[in-house]
Amino acid sequence: MNSRIGYIAANTFREAVRDRVLYNLIAFALLLTGAAVLVGQISIDIERLVVISLGLTAVSLFGLVIAIFIGIGLVSKEMDKRTLYTVLSRPVRRWEFIAGKFFGLTGTLVVNAAFMAIGVFAALSYVSSHHALIASDGWVLLALYFIVLEFVIITGLALFFSSFSSPLLSAVFTFSLFVIGTFSEDLRGFAKMAHGLTGLLVTGISYVVPNFSALNIIDQVAHGHGVATELIGLNTAYALIYSLAVLAGATLIFERRSLK
């Protein structure tokens, strides 16, 4: 990473911290503590399942909200407030600005997810009979890694929409793609059944929208099942290629934009 990208990323991270984005961790901690205490009292043998499901879903949703609400303003807010003027009049190329913003927000989400992961493991340890983690908890780490890959794609998408549309529309587009992407496996199933133009159209859409179903292994992990190890490489490559493609799109659009 060149130094200018690093400085822009660090500034984006600092903005998130100073805007008290990490305060969401308090809400997350309260939620998880409450859940751990509650399931410890009312459930029999499914405490781990509940804590893992709830914990990982909360990590995913909290991160999704942060990724969308910060991501959609990464470019448009800087344009509206004209803070971009004093950045782009320096030896900073537009693609470096996009890359810096992307890494800054991704870094924020990774730090946020890391703190949440500590919370999930603490809750797991609390509800375990011997207050100790077991070998299958390693899969929880993998599920967390896939959630981070999900964040990488969502950040890229939010940044992409932010490079040409208003924050509100960017939020709508990004969230819509997240929802559609969550059901992308169903979409592919439907595409196989459809014929003619509809079949072609649905197949095209199912491959263009991000495949978040493949990144969601919360259910398997909560039930103590593992996943095929080749999925790690495939999902990593998929997330990197997808986010690189949307970032390239964001850069292409932003390179041609005249600022207000």
Partner: peptide
């Protein structure tokens, strides 16, 4: 970028990162 390293710019009604 070599040129941009040698210029300074103050925009009209400047707004900076207020945090």
């Amino acid at each position: 970028p070599r040129m941009k390293a040698q210029i300074g710019f103050l925009p009209e009604h400047p707004y900076f990162y207020d945090y």
